Amino acid sequence: MPRPPRAEQFSPDEVCIVHVTQRCVRRAFLAGVDFVTGKDFSYRREWIRRRLESLASVFSVDVLTYSIMSSHVHVILRNRPDVLAQWSDTEVALRWLKVFPGHRLEEHLAEPTENDVQSLVRDKQRLKTIRQRLADISWFMRALSEPIARRANKVDECTGHFWEGRFKAQRIVDETGLLACSMYVDLNPVRAAMADSPDHSPHTSAYDRIEAGKGRQIDSAAFDLKPIPSEQVAKNTRETPVEALRKKQRAKRKNPTGRKVRRDGWLAPLPLDPSTLASEPQVHTDGFRSSDRGFLSVSLNEYLRLLRWTAKHANDTAKLPAGVAQTLAALGIESSMWRDLVWHWENYFGQSTCVGRSESMQADAVRTGHHWHRGQSNASACFV
């Protein structure tokens, strides 16, 4: 059965939550130790995490959950056209030029100038297209995958494909499916025996949230959302050699804003705020992410408690603690099936393009003009 068209799964014009997976070609090692060659590519995990962090600061796309494995990447994304609608034309142009500079008026600079931004703002037709792309998950993944592929090929001194093809996408259609999928993504290193618990699983969203709770901060990889003033360009080109200017710009890339951020400050907050209306965009104003909206109706402590219990009791028959069972019941999840659902996710949703309760999947199938989604019958066994 062929994959459905992207436009059928998600649209930049409506809020959608999508689980995406990007895998290396020929099962090559993205990060970690290649057992054939003995080379250690672990440092590439930080490349990807920082690229995710920088893109979260310019796209109107929230990063909800992620994990970076040896040969693939899992990310749960939520596009936010409602946030995008709050941005001015100048802001849209600047954000786009930070990621896709194209042909700059001042080619020797690594940053867009005021002239570049205003030139794009005047092109109304192109700006309209760009505005839509900033809320498009496909363009977000393109901006993530292409630079990583080029950088890895340069290090490996080779050419050709680095990723095996277009990313795999699963639309998540309800909160029940979102909780299960988030747990599956966060527990990937534990499932692969790369770590014994979420607390020891770097380069996952769970680890970032745990470390942030301890007060950990990191150098921000967010783009500096300020253009270079035109008068400064003229001054620099007269007084500073071009190579010295480029060296200064390369140094800035390590921490574009010069600020520190909580370890999870670039991720979408986990708990939904019950005091806010669903229609409120909750635009983030500090420049680290697109919005401050959460995505689950459980607290971070409840989430981590369930995550740790699931990681610890993968293969035994331990009874769910009362608090954990209550959390699952409130979301309509069959507690006796929870462990099997998370640890054997591929058996339930591995071939599905949609994730959620059976009735939610059925409603989404009708939306797209189909009779059913693959995996729908399996979902009915896990969700009450």
Results as ranks from 00 to 15, higher is better:
residue 26 R to H: 12
residue 40 D to N: 14
residue 69 M to R: 00
residue 75 V to L: 15
residue 55 L to H: 05
residue 74 H to P: 02
residue 73 V to Y: 05
residue 45 R to Y: 11
residue 33 V to L: 15
residue 57 S to K: 02
residue 75 V to R: 12
residue 29 F to L: 04
residue 53 E to W: 01
residue 45 R to E: 13
residue 71 S to D: 03
residue 38 G to Y: 07
residue 48 I to S: 02
residue 47 W to Y: 08
residue 49 R to P: 00
residue 37 T to F: 11
residue 41 F to D: 06
residue 73 V to S: 03
residue 66 Y to M: 08
residue 32 G to D: 10
residue 39 K to F: 08
residue 34 D to I: 13
residue 69 M to N: 09
residue 50 R to G: 09
residue 55 L to I: 01
residue 43 Y to M: 06
residue 33 V to T: 12
residue 61 V to I: 11
residue 22 Q to G: 14
residue 74 H to M: 07
residue 72 H to R: 12
residue 68 I to W: 10
residue 29 F to W: 15
residue 43 Y to L: 10
residue 32 G to T: 01
residue 59 F to Y: 13
residue 50 R to A: 11
residue 61 V to Y: 01
residue 74 H to F: 08
residue 63 V to F: 08
residue 29 F to H: 11
residue 34 D to L: 14
residue 33 V to C: 07
residue 73 V to L: 11
residue 29 F to Q: 08
residue 49 R to K: 06
residue 36 V to P: 04
residue 64 L to I: 01
residue 65 T to K: 02
residue 19 H to M: 15
residue 47 W to K: 08
residue 28 A to L: 11
residue 62 D to E: 08
residue 76 I to M: 11
residue 75 V to C: 13
residue 46 E to W: 09
residue 40 D to H: 11
residue 56 A to L: 03
residue 33 V to E: 06
residue 21 T to C: 08
residue 63 V to S: 02
residue 21 T to P: 10
residue 66 Y to S: 10
residue 38 G to E: 08
residue 37 T to N: 04
residue 74 H to L: 04
residue 69 M to L: 05
residue 51 R to N: 12
residue 44 R to I: 13
residue 43 Y to Q: 03
residue 20 V to F: 10
residue 57 S to R: 03
residue 33 V to Q: 08
residue 68 I to V: 09
residue 48 I to K: 00
residue 39 K to C: 13
